[in-house]
Design a protein around this nucleic acid. Structure first.
Lengths: 223, 223
DNA sequence: GGCCTTATAGACAATTCTGTCAATATTGTG
DNA sequence: CACAATATTGACAGAATTGTCTATAAGGCC
């Protein structure tokens, strides 16, 4: 009936791409343990030895997946922040939505399973972002103001940690706080955070290196 | 030679506890996929059918693990915040260290695999915390000040999301920012965040419900 | 002390998943 | 057109894991 050939023969590049996309979907949904070669192959519509042919082994597939996740992450952040220079509502919104739609989950799996490859191959992107934001901050400050660059670093780190944390635990935390788990509540948090950060960055800085008496007291009370 | 009995017979309660502890260690280290009955049994020093005897099935073990994680989480947060009422360095330090030592990882696994049980069984603890903190905030404010309770909620949510995010992604983010991945850098972040939060909570509030023009512009530009 | 309950152990069944191998079909090239 | 290269397939091997079943031993109770 159909004139379909018995086999669909893809270029090696196309095959790798299709396999990676299917594997990513499963990674975000069910975690690395859900990446079973037969299932991924079924999603693509091929037989599982094809995956082994193109990636050598299951571990090779995971490795390729890691690299792709890092690339996506860097590209998203660098591109978005690079255009703005300041974490506005718009920037945060894009970062949050990118993370919420599977990127954070993929990254979490890779971090938790320790399959993040060699240390240092990753994201020097953050360094770049911190530098850019700090420049803008200094330029916007009244002349003569001294701003501790570490305060800017802390702020960016806070945004990053909160974005990842919200992407993964947000729905559960909101449910525990009696809020709607998804939808408008998340964007409201993004906007709130953007305002907080913008407000904070417009101030000189918080003094670091002050002895954290309370924390030390707690530690000594515990030990 | 040894007078050890051929079999160590525990009470059912003890057996369950030892098995859960061993399983938790593996959960934090290698994720749910690493919870293999034979391995957990070997850690405890028993044979794997014992686990099935006490928990019915592997899924039963995971369920029990979930409940324990939720209990630990609630107890940690409630006890700690309950004593202070304000998120000081001391409070944040305790929450952060609890999360960093496996609790966040355990929770992440459970959330990511969707094994968090029925919705609503979880953490109404957050609601309680937000209420407590908001009361303290209102009491400390100059009389006549109107404080939006949602701003307090956002602040607590930020702290929670950041704490979870830092526990899981902190080392990697710091490595990407050129900082030492562990040790003093984390406590410095805790103290910085505590100062930021205390500063923010001492101010009236950020106005919510203002139209988020930038976010909407970005959304319309995308869709 | 004798007996009943039950925690524990060892062996086995059944399933599932990764990886290998030989065979086949499709595409590009001379 | 013939041939080389390689993407794809089906069948199979090997290993690992969950769960079942029967037997045994430890502890509580009369």
């Amino acid at each position: 009936m159909s004139t379909q050939p018995k086999r669909i023969r893809r270029t090696a590049e196309d095959a790798r791409r299709q396999i990676l996309e299917a594997a990513e979907a499963r990674l975000a949904r069910t975690g690395p343990a859900g990446i079973r070669l037969q299932d991924v192959a079924a999603d693509v519509g091929i037989s599982h030895p094809v995956i082994l042919h193109h990636f050598g082994s299951r571990e090779g597939l995971i490795r390729a997946l890691t690299e792709r996740a890092i690339d996506d992450f860097q590209e998203n952040l660098l591109r978005v922040i690079g255009t703005a220079g300041v974490p506005t509502e718009s920037v945060l919104s894009q970062v949050f939505t990118a993370l919420r739609h599977g990127l954070a989950q993929r990254f979490a799996w890779l971090v938790l399973t320790g399959e993040t490859g060699e240390p240092g191959d990753g994201d020097k992107a953050l360094q770049e972002i911190i530098r850019t934001v700090h420049e803008h901050r200094c330029a916007a400050a009244p002349p003569g103001t001294v701003i501790d660059p570490r305060d800017t670093g802390m702020t960016i780190h806070l945004v990053a940690a909160a974005a990842f944390g919200d992407a993964i635990f947000g729905p559960h935390l909101r449910r525990g706080a009696g809020l709607p788990a998804e939808g408008e509540a998340t964007t409201r948090f993004e906007n709130w955070l953007a305002a907080l950060v913008r407000d904070h960055l417009s101030k000189p800085a918080i003094v670091l290196d002050q002895p954290s008496s309370l924390a030390q007291a707690a530690a000594s009370a515990k030990g």
